[in-house]
Design a protein around this nucleic acid. Structure first.
Lengths: 140, 140
DNA sequence: ATAATGCTCGTAGTATGGTACTGAGTCAAG
DNA sequence: CTTGACTCAGTACCATACTACGAGCATTAT
């Protein structure tokens, strides 16, 4: 079981020291023990937790959701199904975002294809005209 | 050329009155003229500008980017090519986001498929284990 | 020994895109 | 004449996720 000072653990995981203090403040990381000097020192459990947070963030989970996942992990009454529900919810979320972005991409492609005379004044730019005249989409 | 009070124009375009005042504060909408009562009154140019902002927002442009587009439109030296560049940049942006989200979706699907025994304790949940042990992606 | 980092704390600021509240004035209807 | 609807200006606050600053100790490298 190793010990780490805040700067060390931050470097290993690749987060800012301030971020760690922020995580402590919002209670997503526990208050670490202190050395006689008052310095925080972390152990391997903390390291695992911090890595978990980092990876879950890369998966698009918010800090709030990550907290839920972490709590599920320590509540012995919670099941794998509980975890699965959170993941499924996130999946729907992500899929909706993908759909939205694809729709936006389609419009952008159309806009860009309209510009065949790059040198003309932006006043007559068909791109701006399309944005201006664009019909509202059907409500989502 | 019609005149609109703040509540009227907001209703037509479908934004909050406060949003309009906010846009004025951040200088994305010009300061409108005032009636003797001090009320703002807007004209059809303002209406077009506001609609433009709304539509560009739906395309995923940020208020800052929309401001650039609007400034290009009034600078007579700017060309349609300038506008095209912004749109192309936004397209790359959007495409990167789509790629990121697809990667996340893939991992989530894999996570979810791992949970075959919903009733087991979260302590042994393979989903959490995967998040924990997940390898870092290649740097983007 | 001394300089250079490193860590402490609290507070405040960043960026995004707004929303909500306060207290006052205007205006038309009943 | 009072009520209710609307507007005004200004400010505070929301969520999200950090990031920075500065004073003052601690540790470390040379």
């Amino acid at each position: 079981m190793n010990n780490y000072k805040v700067g060390e653990i931050a470097k290993i995981v690749g987060v800012n020291v301030e971020t760690l203090r922020y995580y402590e403040r919002i209670k997503i990381m526990p208050k670490p023990k202190r050395l006689p000097s008052g310095y925080r020192y972390y152990n391997d459990d903390d390291l695992r937790r911090l890595l978990f947070i980092k990876r879950a963030k890369e998966l698009g989970f918010t800090l709030k959701e990550i907290n839920e996942l972490l709590n599920l992990r320590i509540e012995s009454t919670s099941t794998c199904g509980d975890v699965k529900h959170i993941a499924e919810h996130k999946l729907l979320d992500i899929e909706e975002k993908i759909r939205d972005l694809k729709r936006i991409r389609k419009v952008l492609l159309r806009l860009i294809s309209q510009c065949v005379h790059e040198e003309i004044s932006s006043v007559e730019c068909p791109i701006l005209e399309i944005i201006e005249k664009r019909q509202k989409r059907s409500p989502k």
